[in-house]
Design a protein around this nucleic acid. Structure first.
Lengths: 190, 190
DNA sequence: CAGCAATGCTAGCGGTGCTAGGGTTGCGGT
DNA sequence: ACCGCAACCCTAGCACCGCTAGCATTGCTG
């Protein structure tokens, strides 16, 4: 039994090493640089080992994305609960969201742009995603008015997502980001 | 001189055939299915011919995207100018935008998600992109208030882009699209 | 009609994600 | 203590990708 548990522990550690290597490599050089060969070299095992842990490269990216959902939810929660007054919660949460996406572009891509077939129907993804979504919802609740809160939250989220992705692909000037963010926040604050 | 012009004409036709093949293939099976080998087979030439017209696959995708910008601009212009009254222009333009993206997903991807290094500083891209942008700006102008029109337009655009991309990647339920769109339109109509 | 220039082909390079099959290692039962 | 077996991991390779070098062939020009 002892050797069994040791093996399982080593396996779990190796799996974490794979995810960490993928994440670090993606953040440093982008997802294009994350190849199964480089990943294998990074963890000092051969390529096929990766496939004993994950179904394929997409699954590895999904695992990295899962970590991202937890981080994003935490960042949003911190921003909202530490807002000076409830009226500023929307602005603070919005700023936290775009900052998160801006500072971890590769992670954000894995979460929302690439890896379409995330394990949405299982694991902790829905949980952490829902946590982040709930933070957005609480922030915009006072300004929802007669509209359905879920629809307002989703729309606000879409606005943030659009700002982030369009700016990062060069369609929107970076210099005007704060101005745009202020407009969005204003429209969802009253 | 006659043979010269004939050759140039044939070359131009072939170039159009490449773009058309890429577009059709992308719309039918997605951009992953668009390989240089399949493209070459489609136009009944060998692979290297593609590279005498375009610098690489990205350039072909960019050419497809350029067509898309013109179409989108036209669709938005039609929606805005045929709106029953100016008050409904925002709703009609917004609907036209999301419908365009929904019906030509591959084209939309080429325009806004993939192909980062578009010929932004040349050709007709800025023109058509600016045309589309101007339509959005005219629609939201009455509701801009004291805010900078450009910032409001860019933010509205981001909202549309976010709705489209998040829905297409499965993050937002398709059934609630109209409700979300109504929220966005409402927030940019007053 | 000869020579040349342009044009498009075959073949191949280095890379990708992924997998089949064989060794080697090390645990478990006698 | 040792032997057989099972689990594990590596080497080698497949089919495909974008892209390019170099050669034939074609067809215009003087």
């Amino acid at each position: 039994m002892s050797t069994q548990t040791r093996r399982e522990r080593e396996r779990a550690e190796r799996e974490r090493a794979i995810i960490a290597a993928a994440r670090d490599l993606a953040l440093a050089e982008g997802w294009d640089a994350v190849t199964t060969r480089r990943l294998a070299a990074e963890i000092e095992y051969s390529q096929p080992v990766l496939y004993s842990h994950f179904k394929g490269k997409d699954a590895i990216m999904a695992a990295v994305a899962v970590e991202g959902f937890a981080e994003l939810a935490t960042a949003l929660a911190t921003a909202r609960t530490s807002a000076a007054d409830p009226g500023r919660a929307v602005a603070d949460v919005a700023a936290a969201y775009t900052t998160f996406a801006d500072q971890r572009p590769a992670l954000y891509d894995a979460m929302f742009t690439l890896a379409v077939d995330l394990p949405f129907a299982s694991q902790g993804v829905p949980t952490d995603l829902a946590r982040g979504f709930a933070e957005l919802a609480e922030a915009v609740r006072p300004a929802a008015g007669d509209d359905d809160l879920e629809a307002v939250t989703e729309t606000f989220w879409s606005g943030l997502h659009g700002l982030v992705t369009l700016m990062r692909s060069g369609r929107l000037r970076r210099a005007d980001h704060d101005r745009r963010l202020a407009v969005l926040v204003d429209r969802f604050s009253r």
